[in-house]
Design a protein around this nucleic acid. Structure first.
Lengths: 225, 225
DNA sequence: AGCCATTATTTTGTCGACAATTTTAATATT
DNA sequence: AATATTAAAATTGTCGACAAAATAATGGCT
């Protein structure tokens, strides 16, 4: 993607990964002197990286207090699903108009790979999750809408991955998801943007409801404990 | 909104306004030494502000080269309309479920003020434009979805305002827009999220088509010149 | 003259230090 | 013992300076 050149760049990438993967837990207050010492860079360089992490929504900043890793509640996870439903629905509609035959071809291949992979390594829910995001990623790119692409791939998807890593919501809907993906591709290939959007919105809404249910169950069992 | 405290904060706010209003033209390369001297701050403070401006999408940065004001083409303006259609459509749907009676009341008052204002100062297209954005702004807040609110009010709306200032696309649809706004409020008040979303999407799509047409006309007249 | 290589100059990236603010600790008071 | 006040420590905000990189200028060559 973007070539890493400066110290701040690689720091940005490294911290981003550590935050997404939860090695730096949510809501952690970041100490600039401590982090700078750990990475053996000056505070200027560190702060450059930190402000960029704030820009993509992974950090919050309070004047005269400092940076803190965001802390996502389950309520906010559901909010993210609603945003995704809107944005990816539109992306799908646009993809039906704008994807090249070549892009559609590659999308089909991607789905086949995921399918065969999931048959082999059943239970590897993690792989399925990343694959799922790949699929969505390709459609978003296929929208050819730079604003849309930026919002999703450079901001929202980091939050999504952060959730998946830290809450480990492995979907039990894998099989159904594949079938839904298939139908979405077909609609895109037909150039039927309206249908493609509807199918994508349903697909994401179904995931949201699934998570919603799981949260409700969790809350219940925790009450009993 | 957020209280200004640090030098970098006020710099951020001032530069943001100057960029949005076009006092610093699109695509301008920013010289850090020059800007720092002009504002009488150190480069550290300036860079803090600049990186935040990058975060909200008003500046672009290239490693070892520096910051540059973004440059929006008319094609990208249309892209923004598509994103708004998706996001504000969803915001409207959510607003129908989540707005309090108080918020709906204030929204109605807002529309009345705009209507009487526009009757008095006809031709003041600029006022209408800002009023229009206010209306949309209130609905977005009414969604009570923090992610959605952030994306629109802290990022996309700056681009929208930047366009309006610099391209001065005064809408000739003012009268129709008022009527559309009225219907949207009614749907929200009825708690009919599905209808509210459809109406908002049509409303924004109509604006987009309007701009699209104008661009086509402009292109034609320029060919003739 | 036009183009390429080399040198100067400017600009960005990075560093360490001090000032202003916040947070923590200690002390006094009820 | 708990709270309020004050003092100490640590943290963030800001500054100026140097190093590395990119841009501009100079000079040599065909």
């Amino acid at each position: 993607m973007e070539l890493v050149t400066t110290r701040a760049d690689s720091l940005f990438n490294d911290l981003r990964q550590r935050i997404v993967e939860g090695q730096i837990p949510m809501a952690t207050k970041l100490s600039e002197p401590e982090l700078a010492a750990h990475y053996e860079v000056s505070r200027s360089t560190l702060r450059d990286a930190l402000s960029r992490l704030e820009g993509i929504g992974l950090l919050e900043r309070k004047a005269n207090v400092g940076y803190r890793v965001i802390s996502l509640s389950t309520a906010q996870l559901l909010e993210i699903f609603q945003v995704r439903e809107a944005l990816e629905g539109m992306a799908c509609r646009l993809a039906a108009s704008n994807m090249t035959p070549d892009e559609i071809q590659r999308l089909r291949q991607l789905l086949q790979i995921h399918q065969s992979n999931s048959l082999l390594q059943q239970g590897e829910a993690y792989m399925q999750q990343e694959g799922d995001l790949d699929f969505h990623y390709q459609i978003v790119l296929g929208s050819h809408n730079q604003q849309l692409i930026r919002m999703l791939t450079e901001e929202l998807y980091y939050l999504v991955r952060m959730y998946r890593y830290q809450f480990g919501m492995a979907s039990p809907r894998a099989k159904r998801a594949f079938s839904e993906h298939q139908h979405i591709i077909d609609a895109i290939a037909d150039g039927d943007g309206e249908l493609a959007e509807i199918l994508m919105r349903r697909h994401i809404a179904a995931s949201r409801k699934n998570v919603e249910q799981r949260i409700a169950v969790n809350a219940t069992t925790q009450e009993q404990a």
